[in-house]
Design a protein around this nucleic acid. Structure first.
Lengths: 236, 236
DNA sequence: TTCTGTGAAGTACTTCACAGCA
DNA sequence: TGCTGTGAAGTACTTCACAGAA
């Protein structure tokens, strides 16, 4: 049913990182074997993953680093600017806003929100923290401008994460990156029909980043080393 | 070949979080249907995942929240203390050290390391930052004490992450949680045999947490909403 | 000859259907 | 009757083997 495995997308991100490293070392050519070794996957996997999106190599020769990099950037949608708001400007929100590398890919923070009155008005990289009640108007107000908000990052405490997601969806963002250690329910009501996302959630994409989960998985695999397998992100 | 899917472990972590929520709400019983809805997976999946590790329910009745929680804690190895060192005490390292919730699961930071002389000696939660050159002696010195170091977290810049991992492996840690956006090569030499981990790496488990990857995947799925699928962490 | 691109085969994971027990 | 536990069926993903282009 699904055309492209989710895991393949994660691997494309890895290949792109490797191509950037190679470009930085002025390496101009690579191969599925070379990429595979650097990404810790099989060469078959590399070729299959790339084949989902086109033919980027030359038989007998391999791949041209800048060309493949450009194509992966295009496929992953990293040639365009992505405007982001962060909900929750505690330690985690600050760490995210300060994390270097995000703007390497034209991810731009255009709004910062919190509910704590003490934080309102403080500036992070000359962007003021606003009260979360202003989120809806902020997103709507920028809807058809170059500042249009594409994504919201959730960095609030877990007990407020579902409400934060609800806010983002109602405001009209298209994607949510959830840093809180809960599963966001793609529906509005507390107890809606199982597996039936509410309409307004239908077109919203949710991804998760959970490093407590990473710690716990690590603990498990240390105890059960015979189950050790490769994975990605993850990872995630 | 592999007995238990990696994804199943990630889902167990999710079920455990849900059980903790339920316990906090004084809910004493649950079912595969209920857990499935809260975790956004199928009830079959829940039952199969649990069945990998034992029989925790009662037919006709469902699961007892505290009992299932206790069993999952045991399976995931969260009944014991895990001693952790952090390599790289820049913003990211600080964010990790300060992240609340880690010590809820008896993950304890026992050593903080950096190479920047300006940071050495500063304290985070009354734990001093040491120079990374002391890592090996630190880990070895605590090897057979209650402070034995189990895991190392890598929070250094990407170009130093492989060396940091090398340091950790040589020092003798069993698990690495890598926050840097690179693939750690499980081998010592710059260009070793493909897929052949060096001996000392054989028993080391590596997990990744990469939120830039999360941002990039999100961008892709916003552009390609017809490929939208469920996933779990991840990945990383 | 080399290394990509890809249908086919193999494997792993998920879903199903129902047996089994409270 | 109700809901778990689990072999069997179905599906998705990975690996393979080789055709095909430089």
């Amino acid at each position: 049913m699904s055309e492209i495995p989710t895991a393949a997308i994660s691997r494309l991100v890895t290949y792109l990182r490797i191509l950037e490293q190679l470009e930085g070392q002025d390496v101009s050519r690579t191969s599925s074997n070379d990429l595979a070794e650097r990404a810790s996957v099989t060469p078959f996997q590399v070729r299959k993953d790339l084949a989902y999106f086109g033919r980027f190599g030359t038989r007998g020769m391999g791949y041209t680093v800048p060309l493949l990099k450009r194509e992966l950037m295009r496929v992953l949608g990293l040639n365009q600017t992505w405007n982001v708001v962060i909900l929750g400007m505690g330690r985690l929100g600050h760490a995210i806003a300060n994390y270097p590398g995000a703007n390497d890919y034209r991810f731009q923070y255009v709004g910062l929100f919190d509910s704590n009155p003490e934080l309102i008005g403080r500036e992070v990289h000359s962007l003021p923290i606003q009260h979360v009640s202003r989120l809806h108007d902020f997103v709507q107000g920028h809807a058809h401008t170059p500042q249009r908000v594409d994504m919201g990052f959730i960095a609030v405490p877990p007990e407020h994460a579902q409400a934060a997601a609800q806010n983002l969806v109602e405001a009209g963002v298209r994607g949510i990156l959830n840093f809180a250690p809960i599963v966001i329910q793609p529906r509005t009501s507390e107890r809606g029909d199982i597996y039936e996302p509410t309409d307004e959630w239908k077109n919203v994409v949710i991804e998760n980043v959970d490093f407590l989960a990473g710690m716990k998985r690590l603990a498990f695999y240390i105890l059960n080393p015979h189950l050790k397998l490769s994975d990605t992100e993850e990872n995630t």
